[in-house]
Every structure is written in structure tokens, then in C-alpha cells.
Amino acid sequence: MTLLLKQIFNFLKLLNSDTETSPLAYGLSLGLILGFAPFFSIQTFIVLFIIFIFRVQLGAAFLSAFFFKFVAFLFDYPAHLLGKSVLEAEPLRPLFVSLYNMPIVPMTRFNNSIVMGSMIVSLVLFPFAFYAFKALILAYRATVVARFKGTKAWKAFTATKFYNWYTKYDELYG
């Protein structure tokens, strides 16, 4: 639980800082794929591998995965229809038979219509989500953070010894 809270606080800190927006946007977008994928599946492990290997914000990925897990239930019926139409497509039948006979591929559960449809939807939405999240982060920083840092309360808080101690502590121990 503390790891999750630490990641959420790190995400909020990065959201309000002047750091690069791409790791946050990639984290949020990969969380979309995590949210639509089944919990224990190859897809989940591949996305987690990508998150841990590349420079992606972990808190953003877990936070958006948590959110998109709930949203994915709303897309179950359309995902079922899409997955069913893909799985029942006659030209793809030999491909699916050969994939099902491979050693590890059936653990992706691609033969489930909801899993297939959800994976297609999440992969199609991934680039759009990345650019949308990037634009939202930039807009958030330009409006909300700039307006908040201009308030008298924030200026008074940054003048306190507690704030100076916190910034020194955060600088030394992260």
C-alpha cells in the first residue's frame, strides 16, 4: 500500500514540476493497456516489462491502470462484439489455430472475445491517449500550476522554514 501511495505522490510531484511530459504521458497511456488487459496474462507482463525497462513514470501507469480497469467494464459488450467478429473471421482461422497450438501464446487468452476486443481497443486508443494526455498535462501546467504558484498563500508557504527544510530534504533524499 505504501508503494502505491509513494508512486501516486511521485506522480503528483512530477505533474506539478517542470519535468518532461513524455514519461508521464507514456505512463498514463500504458496504464490504459494495463487496465484493459486481464490481470494475470502475458499482455500484462509485457506492458510491465516495458514500463520497467523504458523511462516511463510508474505511478502514472498504475494510477491510470486503476482508473481504466473500471472503465474497461463499460466497454465489455462492444469489446465482445469486436473480438467475436475478429475471432470468427474465416481468413484468420488458420492463424488462430496455429497460435493456439504454440506453447505460450494461449496464456494471452486471445481466444476469449472480450480479451481480444479489449486488446484491439486499447492498442488502437494508445497513440490517441498518449497525445491527449500530453496535451492535458501541458494545459494543466500552463493554467492550474501557474495560477496556484501565483497565489499569496503559495508565496507565503514557500517563505517558511518548513518549506525550505522540505526542499532540502527532497533534494538530498528524493
Rank of each mutant, 00 (worst) to 15 (best):
F70V: 11
F70N: 07
L74K: 11
F75K: 09
P78K: 10
P78Q: 04
P78F: 05
A79H: 06
H80F: 15
H80M: 13
H80P: 01
L81W: 07
L82R: 04
G83M: 01
K84W: 13
K84C: 06
S85A: 15
V86D: 08
V86S: 08
V86I: 15
L87K: 12
E88F: 04
E88V: 04
E88Y: 08
A89D: 13
E90D: 11
E90M: 04
P91K: 06
P91N: 00
R93Y: 07
P94I: 07
L95Q: 07
L95P: 00
V97C: 05
L99T: 00
P103I: 07
P103W: 02
M107I: 01
T108F: 09
R109A: 00
N111L: 11
N111M: 14
N112M: 12
N112C: 05
N112P: 05
S113V: 12
S113L: 09
S113I: 09
V115S: 10
V115N: 07
V115P: 12
G117M: 12
M119Y: 12
V121W: 04
S122Y: 03
S122L: 06
S122N: 07
L123T: 06
L123C: 11
L125K: 06
L125Q: 06
F126Y: 06
P127C: 05
F130P: 10
A132R: 03
A132L: 15
F133R: 04
K134V: 09
L136S: 13
I137M: 12
A139G: 12
A139M: 10
R141M: 02
A142K: 14
A142N: 15
T143V: 00
T143G: 05
V144C: 00
V145M: 01
V145H: 04
V145G: 08
A146Q: 13
F148G: 09
F148A: 13
F148Q: 14
K149Q: 15
G150K: 08
G150P: 02
G150F: 04
T151M: 04
T151G: 02
T151R: 11
K152R: 13
K152W: 11
A153S: 12
K155S: 09
A156P: 01
F157K: 12
F157Y: 14
T158H: 08
K161A: 13
Y163D: 03
Y163L: 01
Y163A: 10
N164S: 14
N164E: 15
W165D: 09
Y166T: 12
T167H: 13
T167Y: 02
K168F: 00
